[in-house]
Amino acid sequence: MIIKYDEYELLELFESEPTPIFEEEQGIFQYKKEDEAGIQLIFIMSIYERRCRFSLNIKKLESRLVEFELNNLVELAKSEERLLLYTKESRDPFIINFNPIFSFSRINIG
Results as ranks from 00 to 15, higher is better:
residue 83 L to N: 01
residue 55 S to F: 02
residue 32 K to W: 00
residue 89 E to L: 08
residue 71 N to S: 12
residue 88 K to D: 13
residue 57 N to W: 11
residue 33 K to M: 07
residue 101 I to E: 04
residue 94 F to Q: 09
residue 97 N to E: 14
residue 91 R to W: 01
residue 83 L to S: 03
residue 62 E to H: 09
residue 74 V to I: 15
residue 32 K to M: 06
residue 51 R to D: 14
residue 34 E to M: 07
residue 92 D to L: 15
residue 48 Y to V: 04
residue 65 L to H: 07
residue 47 I to T: 13
residue 50 R to Y: 03
residue 46 S to R: 02
residue 62 E to S: 11
residue 104 F to L: 11
residue 86 Y to P: 09
residue 48 Y to C: 02
residue 85 L to S: 00
residue 88 K to C: 04
residue 33 K to D: 02
residue 43 F to Q: 09
residue 67 E to N: 05
residue 73 L to D: 02
residue 79 S to E: 15
residue 44 I to K: 06
residue 37 A to L: 13
residue 104 F to D: 04
residue 63 S to W: 15
residue 43 F to W: 12
residue 54 F to I: 09
residue 65 L to W: 07
residue 76 L to D: 03
residue 86 Y to E: 10
residue 58 I to M: 13
residue 36 E to G: 02
residue 40 Q to G: 02
residue 69 E to M: 13
residue 104 F to W: 12
residue 41 L to V: 09
residue 87 T to F: 06
residue 34 E to H: 00
residue 58 I to C: 07
residue 78 K to Q: 11
residue 53 R to K: 12
residue 99 N to E: 14
residue 61 L to T: 01
residue 100 P to I: 11
residue 35 D to S: 06
residue 43 F to P: 08
residue 102 F to V: 06
residue 93 P to A: 04
residue 77 A to D: 10
residue 81 E to I: 01
residue 30 Q to S: 12
residue 55 S to R: 14
residue 39 I to Q: 05
residue 76 L to R: 03
residue 92 D to N: 14
residue 43 F to K: 10
residue 92 D to H: 05
residue 54 F to C: 09
